[in-house]
Nucleic acid binder design. Structure first.
Lengths: 144, 144
DNA sequence: CTAATTGAGATAAAATTTGTCTTATATTTT
DNA sequence: AAAATATAAGACAAATTTTATCTCAATTAG
């Protein structure tokens, strides 16, 4: 009943990126250092984010990552589901055949309801919401 | 981002018990059979429930388990936390020292908020809610 | 005493999470 | 054009958690 380290790193990494000027190319090494996460792990996480289309990757010297979507359009739910997979509170919610209780037991509907509430909450936050102090970091020396 | 099989089994097991007449002694074997769960696993789960004080165990022939609390007082949150441990959506929510962002980043408060919402929802359902068809099963032959 | 049942805990398989290391690729510099 | 460099990509692996199983001890009813 928690998000993974990987999702947490992904969110923090994207927030770090969102604090940079729009279009800035970010290196995994920097992202990892500034989010206190293992660089090689963060590298893999950003590969997944790139595959999903959320960010764009550039290979080679001076390569790195840029946003492929606006931070305000990237919800926490999107990030968590890209990294951890679909949010499914209980097996029976997603797979009706695995829930013998559909139709004669309320457990199914409880999990469905709570899951809806949870995903709605996760959808109500965007990466941009946590980069609000962006202006404060936009001083030339902070932009680098 | 899900409950464990063990928590699901525990809830279904307790609901099964709640459909029996109050005070009935239930065998793990029956509980497991009627919830489609591995008996030995269910046995361990009920040991944990007994240790928590939610149910009472009787050893020996004709032993088994009875409720130690009213089904309407046993919330889903209680069961999940007994089996899976405390609900903590993200590491930084529980352990302030592991969250470098407390005070200067909203991620901490997002997880705190969503966690509150989730635990509140889980607390709003009780085992009794899912044993509502109890009366329908109270026919003498169903009571056994 | 015997059979039935739980308690406790050792053991283990499977899956998932968390991470590292090597390789491939593109870019810059020479 | 070649070499050096910085990076992504992906194979590999360690650690942890989940999901069990199995054995043996304890207890009690008949």
């Amino acid at each position: 009943m928690n998000i993974s380290r990987a999702s947490d790193y992904a969110i923090r990494g994207l927030v770090y990126m969102a604090k940079k000027p729009a279009g800035a190319v970010c290196f995994v090494k920097d992202i990892a250092k500034n989010t206190n996460s293992p660089a090689s792990f963060m590298s893999k996480i950003f590969q997944t984010l790139a595959k999903s289309g959320l960010v764009h990757s550039f290979i080679g010297t001076k390569g790195g990552f840029t946003f492929n979507a606006r931070p305000e359009d990237i919800t926490i739910k999107m990030v968590v589901e890209i990294i951890d997979g679909p949010i499914v509170l209980n097996r029976c919610v997603v797979n009706k055949s695995s829930c013998r209780n559909v139709g004669n037991c309320d457990v199914h509907f409880m999990w469905l309801d709570i899951q809806k509430m949870l995903t709605k909450a996760l959808s109500s936050y965007s990466i941009a919401d946590f980069a609000a102090d962006k202006k404060g970091n936009m001083l030339p020396e902070a932009v680098q």
